[in-house]
């Protein structure tokens, strides 16, 4: 298991370098010259050229990339073009918010999806399964911003229970923080929950027809243990895959939901950076998001090793 883990980790490093290169190149292709914007409206051609040089934009592409990646390795992703913040600083500011939102959303999703998926799998083809399938189809096809607005209207505006928008830092008030996270967490959680329920229902009902489940029943193991222990460990692989995909996606910042609820997370930072053509900021966010996705994939891969003993050897 340990060699398996080390091998997986070693595989990630070249991947990150490749991704960072691609990201750097692609972002530079965004039309528009940031030097013109930065130098100001009435800048002369010389001033613009000076700005270009100061920003390092006149160097060759490879020199620019080298400077950037060698900084990035030391945790320095450069300076925002439009604010006094460093890119690293801005990301570190925003990431905990997105992380908290993701954790809350995944908790909501799992609390609903696991029981719902099990019930649907146990009653495949009968009414509980049909109900779950219908609800998940609705959940999957419903855009999250629409669900978010709906929740705001029903739960925040119609009743004074939850705040419609806003964010309270954890350091300020734990209760306020949690309070602000409830609606966005549900909005994101319900979408994730639908995917996970559907996946769990499918894989668990397949697993429950396997011979080893019949063996466990024939040996007198209790129904609940058969399903939860013997069934779920085998059914978990595709579920973990989907979950990892969703978590990676959420950790990159859920632009729409963060906007709807006014949450200062990574998604919100990203959208600002794109609108302002804050190139170092965009590069930083994309590379960090990519690294996060790869990290999540690593965790998912490691969980395969735990869930499926055969994987460890290959």
């Amino acid at each position: 298991m340990i060699t398996y883990a080390l091998r997986r980790i070693a595989m990630i490093i070249p991947l990150i370098i490749m991704v960072s290169f691609g990201v750097y190149a692609l972002v530079l292709m965004i039309p528009g010259d940031p030097a013109i914007t930065i130098a100001g409206e009435n800048a002369t051609e010389e001033q613009i050229q000076a700005t270009r040089e100061r920003l390092g934009l006149t160097d060759s592409f490879f020199v620019q990339y080298w400077n950037w990646i060698s900084g990035a390795v030391r945790g320095d992703l450069g300076q925002s073009l439009f604010s006094s913040q460093t890119v690293t600083g801005a990301i570190l500011d925003r990431f905990p918010v997105t992380l908290a939102l993701t954790a809350a959303a995944v908790t909501v999703a799992l609390l609903i999806a696991v029981p719902a998926g099990i019930i649907a799998a146990l009653h495949r083809g009968r009414w509980p399964d049909r109900a779950v399938t219908l609800l998940t189809s609705i959940g999957i096809s419903m855009p999250s911003f629409w669900l978010g607005i709906l929740l705001v209207m029903v739960l925040a505006l119609a009743t004074p229970i939850f705040p419609a928008v806003g964010y309270t830092p954890l350091s300020e008030s734990v209760l306020g923080w949690a309070h602000n996270l409830v609606l966005p967490a549900f909005t994101l959680g319900l979408a994730v929950c639908a995917e996970i329920t559907r996946q769990l229902r499918g894989s668990l009902s397949d697993v429950l027809h396997q011979d080893y489940i019949r063996t466990a029943r024939a040996a007198g193991l209790r129904g609940r243990i058969v399903v939860v222990k013997h069934g779920m460990k085998n059914a978990a692989v595709p579920v973990v895959t989907v979950l990892g995909f969703q978590v990676g996606f959420l950790l990159g910042g859920s632009v729409v939901v963060e906007r709807v609820f006014g949450i200062p997370g990574l998604g919100d930072l990203a959208i600002r950076a794109v609108l302002e053509r804050d190139i170092p900021m965009i590069q930083g966010i994309v590379v960090v998001s990519a690294a996060i996705v790869m990290l999540v994939n690593l965790v998912v891969d490691l969980s395969y090793g735990y869930l499926n003993p055969k994987v460890r050897q290959s």
Partner: peptide, 28 residues
Amino acid sequence: RRRELEEIRGDEVAMIFQEPMTSLNPAF
């Protein structure tokens, strides 16, 4: 009842099957 049967299965009446390749749980 199911609970009473579960007590008997594996304890007083046990069963083995045709497919040895798939009758044991691959995850344990």
